[in-house]
Amino acid sequence: MAKVLMIQADKCTGCRNCELACSAFHEGRFRPRLSRVHAYTWEREGLSVPMMCQQCEDAPCVAVCPTGAMHRNKAENSVDWNKNTCIRCRMCTIACPFGNAVYDSESNAIIKCDLCSGDPECVKFCPNEALTFLEGTIAVRARKKAYAAKFKEVS
């Protein structure tokens, strides 16, 4: 079974190593604005949340794409973008309910997470396991157990 990239916001410290790793890998430079992942911090509350493409099973960006450039890759459990067949209508950026696909005019490209072709760089650089890349079933179990463990603490 293909792996999924799991976000655990409660473990995020807001360090943005993910953004640096992503932009270095994809753009060859440290440019957080062009990262496929962004960790947003609410300073008053001391809370950080990483945001990135969730590779939806029933993806609005795929459904809205008129050319099939945005398409589902069943083998990798990902949503992939084909720059050659894309007409840059940017409908996908409108359709994504999370804002996780954006258009960059400089490179004339749709910027969204592509899981680094199956070996996500952000996961390697996250020092807090806020981003992990796990087998789908394992991912669900790990998360459940983490919350279940809270009951152990209060028992």
């Binding site: 410290t13 360090c15 001391g46």
Partner: peptide, 17 residues
């Protein structure tokens, strides 16, 4: 402590919320 916090590019996370 609510959670640890890290500065930009930090892997140590000594900050305290």
């Amino acid at each position: 402590l609510i959670r640890p916090k890290g500065c930009f590019s930090c892997i140590i996370s000594c900050g305290r919320v």
